[in-house]
C-alpha cells in the first residue's frame, strides 16, 4: 500500500479535474460545443437564414449570399446548399443578386420569430434566468418547439403582445403589432418620451444598456443631444450614452402635456427621514416578483419611507402599509416613487 507516490496521485487527480473542466465548463466546454455542432442540422440553418432575411427586408436592406455568410455562423458550403434547397421548396427566390422571401417563406420566418419572442417572454415571466441569457436560450429553443407547443405556450402566457424587449410577438395568424416610436438619437432636446423597446442585438451594446440599468417603460427627458453623447434624465437619475448605444433604444414621444413628474424617482434613491408615495412598479419587474410586490402593498398611492438601514448596505427595510419589508437594491430600483415635500 505504501509503494505509491502522492505526487503522481495528485497529478492524476488534477489531470482529471482539468479534463472535466474543459469538457463541461459553461458554454465553451468541448462537450457542449460537440453537442451544438452535432445538432446544427439543415433545419437550423434554413430557419436562421429565413429569420435573417426577414430582419433585413424589414429594415429595407438587400441581401445576397455573401452577406448571409458573413452574418451567420455556419460554413459557407452548408449555407449555399441550404439556400439551394430553400429555393426548390419555394421559400426564397432570387431577384437578380438579391435574395428575397416568398409568401411562404415570410410566413415561416414569422413562425420562428413568434417562437423566439414567446420563449423570451416565458423566460422573463416564469423563470429566473438573467436578462442577458434570454436571447441565446430563445435562439436555441426557436428550432425545437412545434406549432402546437407554441400555441399552447402562448395561451399559457396569456397571448402576450410584446416580448420583454418590447418587440411585438406575431400572432398565430401572423398578425404583428407595430413598434411605435423613434430611435432615441432622433429625439430633440427637452422632449419627453417613454422607452418602448430595447434592441437585444448586437450583444455588446445590449450588455452595455443592461449595465446602465435602463428600464423599459420608463419616462425620460432628453437634456443634451449631439454627435458625441446623449444625456437624458429618467426616474431621478442621469444617463449618458454614446449615440450608437442610444440608437438601440426606441422611444415614443409624449405629445400631450402630461404632468410629467419631474420628481419621479426610484425607491432605491430614497433617503432616511424622507416620505414618498408610490407611483408604480417598473415594467422591468416581472412575473412572480412583481406579483409578490403587489401583494405586499407596493401599489400606486401607498405611502412609503425607510424603516431601517442595513449594517451591510442592503437590503433596507421600508415601511409600507404599516409593515416593515426589506427589499434589495435592485428591487427597490424598480419601484417608482414621488417624494413628498414634508416628512410626516
Amino acid at each position: 500500500m505504501n509503494d505509491y507516490n502522492p505526487i503522481s496521485a495528485l497529478i492524476i487527480f488534477f489531470g482529471i479535474a482539468i479534463l472535466l473542466f474543459l469538457l463541461f465548463r459553461p458554454t465553451k466546454g468541448w462537450f457542449w460545443l460537440l453537442q451544438k455542432n452535432f445538432k446544427s442540422n439543415e433545419k437550423v440553418i434554413i430557419e436562421d437564414i429565413l429569420k435573417q432575411l426577414y430582419h433585413f427586408e424589414n429594415s429595407g436592406n438587400k441581401v445576397d449570399t455573401r452577406t448571409l455568410v458573413e452574418v451567420l455562423n455556419f460554413k459557407n458550403k452548408r449555407i449555399v446548399e441550404a439556400i439551394k434547397k430553400m429555393s426548390i421548396n419555394d421559400l426564397v427566390y432570387f431577384d437578380k443578386d438579391a435574395l428575397k422571401l416568398t409568401e411562404e417563406g415570410h410566413e415561416y420566418a414569422l413562425r420562428i420569430i413568434r417562437v423566439h419572442r414567446l420563449w423570451e417572454r416565458y423566460l422573463a415571466d416564469k423563470t429566473g434566468f438573467h436578462k442577458n441569457e434570454w436571447h441565446d436560450r430563445a435562439e436555441r429553443m426557436e428550432h425545437k418547439l412545434s406549432h402546437d407547443e407554441t400555441n399552447k405556450l402562448a395561451s399559457q402566457l396569456g397571448n402576450p403582445k410584446f416580448d420583454p424587449h418590447g418587440d411585438p410577438i406575431p400572432t398565430k395568424t401572423g398578425k404583428i403589432a407595430d413598434i411605435e416610436g423613434v430611435e432615441l438619437p432622433r429625439l430633440p432636446v427637452n422632449s419627453i418620451a417613454r422607452i418602448t423597446h430595447i434592441e437585444d442585438e448586437p450583444e455588446v451594446i445590449y450588455k452595455q444598456i443592461l449595465a446602465e440599468n435602463i428600464h423599459i417603460g420608463s419616462l425620460l427627458k432628453v437634456v443634451e443631444n449631439n454627435n458625441t453623447r446623449i444625456v437624458f434624465h429618467s426616474e431621478g437619475e442621469e444617463f449618458v450614452l454614446a449615440p450608437i448605444v442610444a440608437s438601440n433604444l426606441t422611444v415614443l414621444p409624449i405629445e400631450k402635456e402630461v404632468v410629467i413628474e419631474e420628481n419621479i424617482a426610484r425607491l432605491s434613491g430614497l433617503q432616511e427621514n424622507e416620505m414618498a408615495e408610490i407611483i408604480g412598479i417598473s415594467k422591468e419587474s416581472r412575473g412572480e416578483s412583481r406579483r409578490r410586490l403587489l401583494d405586499l402593498g407596493f401599489v400606486k398611492g401607498s405611502k412609503i419611507k425607510i424603516d431601517l438601514l442595513n449594517p451591510l448596505g442592503e437590503p433596507h427595510a421600508y415601511l409600507v402599509k404599516g409593515t416593515s419589508i426589506a427589499l434589495r437594491k435592485d428591487q427597490a430600483s424598480k419601484i417608482l416613487i414621488k417624494k413628498s415635500e414634508h416628512a410626516d
Binding site: 459553461p26 416564469k126 423563470t127 429566473g128 434566468f129 438573467h130 441569457e133 412575473g287 412572480e288 416578483s289 409578490r292 410586490l293 405586499l296 424603516d307 431601517l308 437590503p315 427595510a317 409593515t323 416593515s324 419589508i325 426589506a326 427589499l327 434589495r328 428591487q331
Partner: peptide, 16 residues
C-alpha cells in the same frame, strides 16, 4: 450560477 440558474427567484423579507 449553474444548475439552479433558471429557477424563479423573488426576494422579500418581512420584519414582523
Amino acid at each position: 450560477k449553474t444548475v439552479l440558474k433558471g429557477e424563479v427567484s423573488t426576494f422579500n423579507l418581512e420584519l414582523p
